[in-house]
């Protein structure tokens, strides 16, 4: 089984946002949502000179994902291919994972009221296609592939050319998404968008789990929440490896 990862070559990104739009179209997302982002930073002075770049990103598909731990219904899980996925049948839209993710990679899709995120284009990659954002990227700034295959482009970028994840000593969830670029550009991103740890408080957890009962009252969500909660109690800590 492959372990998928992505590398962003900042020298190639021109900030055009094609990735954002292709993602929105591919997954028929709400008009103001996307599973990936482009954030211009700079021009700013850095220790390495004047710099300006784009913080391009998507779910880091972390090795130790904080979102999986915080999901009360086991809806969020780490798939065998390395991607962090959401089982929409189990998701109750509580939003714990949104708080838990230090990269802001998740949001509630108002169409189905469930959490939504990048799946590395689940479905497309199974068919041997590239993720939609990679396919449309005009300058090939996005490189997708198997991090365990020594002949893959991503392997070379990470293990030979020194692509780095956006992580800190304090918050390192071991992302599978890496950045390659000039020192000054990496510095800008690390400086502006370093991940910060967000703890989901116990009271928040409880409230979010039971809020559908209190507020919504729809029978489907009551049952889903109940089953999900029961599931979580039954499965305890071993939720990550299931599915």
């Amino acid at each position: 089984m492959a372990k998928y990862g992505m590398v962003f070559d900042l020298d190639k990104c021109i900030g055009c946002h094609a990735c954002v739009m292709a993602c929105r179209a591919e997954w028929e997302l709400p008009a103001d949502k996307s599973r990936c982002w482009v954030k211009p930073i700079g021009p700013e002075n850095t220790p390495y000179g004047l710099a300006s770049t784009f913080y391009i990103g998507l779910c880091n598909q972390c090795e130790e994902p904080s979102c999986v731990k915080e999901c009360p219904t086991t809806a969020t899980y780490k798939a065998d291919n390395g991607a962090v996925l959401v089982n929409k049948e189990l998701c109750i839209g509580c939003g714990n994972c949104i708080i838990a993710c230090p990269y802001g990679a998740r949001y509630i899709n108002e169409i189905d009221k469930k959490v939504d995120k990048c799946t590395f284009c689940e479905g497309r990659i199974q068919r041997g296609e590239q993720p939609a954002c990679v396919k449309t990227c005009p300058t090939n700034a996005r490189i997708f592939g198997d991090l365990e295959n020594k002949n893959s482009a991503v392997y070379k970028k990470v293990y030979e050319e020194g692509a780095v994840p956006i992580a800190t000593a304090r918050v390192n969830l071991h992302p599978n998404v890496f950045y390659l670029g000039k020192e000054r550009d990496i510095h800008l991103i690390a400086d502006s968008y370093a991940p910060a740890k967000n703890d989901v408080s116990i009271s928040n957890q409880l409230w979010r789990i039971f809020s559908p009962l209190v507020v919504g009252g729809a029978s489907a969500s009551i049952i889903a929440a109940f089953i999900a909660f029961a599931n979580q109690i039954r499965k305890g800590e071993q939720t990550e490896e299931d599915e």
């Binding site: 055009c16 094609a18 954002v20 739009m21 929105r24 179209a25 396919k135 449309t136 005009p138």
Partner: peptide, 15 residues
């Protein structure tokens, strides 16, 4: 010229 690539605007033509 552009192959399988499109810019943001090209992708957003649907809108």
């Amino acid at each position: 010229s552009n192959g399988e690539k499109l810019c943001a605007r090209g992708n957003a033509g649907i809108q």
